[in-house]
Design a protein around this nucleic acid. Sequence first.
DNA 1: TATTGAGCTGGAGTGCACTCCATCCATTAC
DNA 2: GTAATGGATGGAGTGCACTCCAGCTCAATA
Lengths: 133, 133
Amino acid sequence: MQIGEFSERSGLSTDTLRYYEKIGLMPSPDRDPGGRRTYSSDHLQWVEFLQVLRSTGMGVRDMARYASLREDGLASVADRLDMLEIHREKVAEERRRLAAVEALLTNKIDMFQGVLDGTLKPTDLSCAVGERT
Amino acid sequence: MQIGEFSERSGLSTDTLRYYEKIGLMPSPDRDPGGRRTYSSDHLQWVEFLQVLRSTGMGVRDMARYASLREDGLASVADRLDMLEIHREKVAEERRRLAAVEALLTNKIDMFQGVLDGTLKPTDLSCAVGERT
DNA sequence: TATTGAGCTGGAGTGCACTCCATCCATTAC
DNA sequence: GTAATGGATGGAGTGCACTCCAGCTCAATA
């Protein structure tokens, strides 16, 4: 498949795809006789995983390192495992942090609602983190 | 308290604090006779909440909008409530997404471990999203 | 009183992750 | 044959959120 279709299927712009290739995130796809990139479904699975890493805060530097390990094949399994375990822990921490923030937001929301429906005096708001009446 | 101490306590650099003030995230603190900023513990609570918003993906544009509503006092409670509810839903969604990513990473990690301890053939790896042997 | 240190301002610079663009080339449709 | 379409390339530009800096003032201390 050519870059246009690949772009649509992966959800990444053609510019981003060429950029990812340039910085070493994507193995260079084969070219057709006219010099145009030809992607396989392997490439598709891979960019989808890249997007997972990216959307969970991994920087392109680390993604490039993982991509390079992946290119090394079996020999790099232990290293890839290390990276994934470290990343999973980061994701888990972030998820726990978000849960705490949700609780804090719920608390503030409840106070605002209390003020709006009159069950709370506006002055009670002052104890809500960072708010003012 | 002066900006140096405030910076230490809040964990934001003095540059960032002045920047936040400039773009309307922070109510301008009083100045001492020499023209230096004097922060209160109210300011501290507020920047701490700003950091919560920031670290959960709210952009400075929206934070400035919230800050401006906060300056309006009681009249803006309904609007602030709206913003917080919308933001809480975003945070909740993100938390659920992270949980899914954790599961995916765990799956890949298990496969790599299987390959390392010999209970899985390297060729089985190919079914793991985006990997190659 | 001289020096040191903290803080002030306006503006330039940085890093990240793209995104856009001009110009050129190949393929396909008519 | 030619026009339209899609892709290639190198390099410049963008938006965000800071971060750094020069040159200054002010206050506390030896």
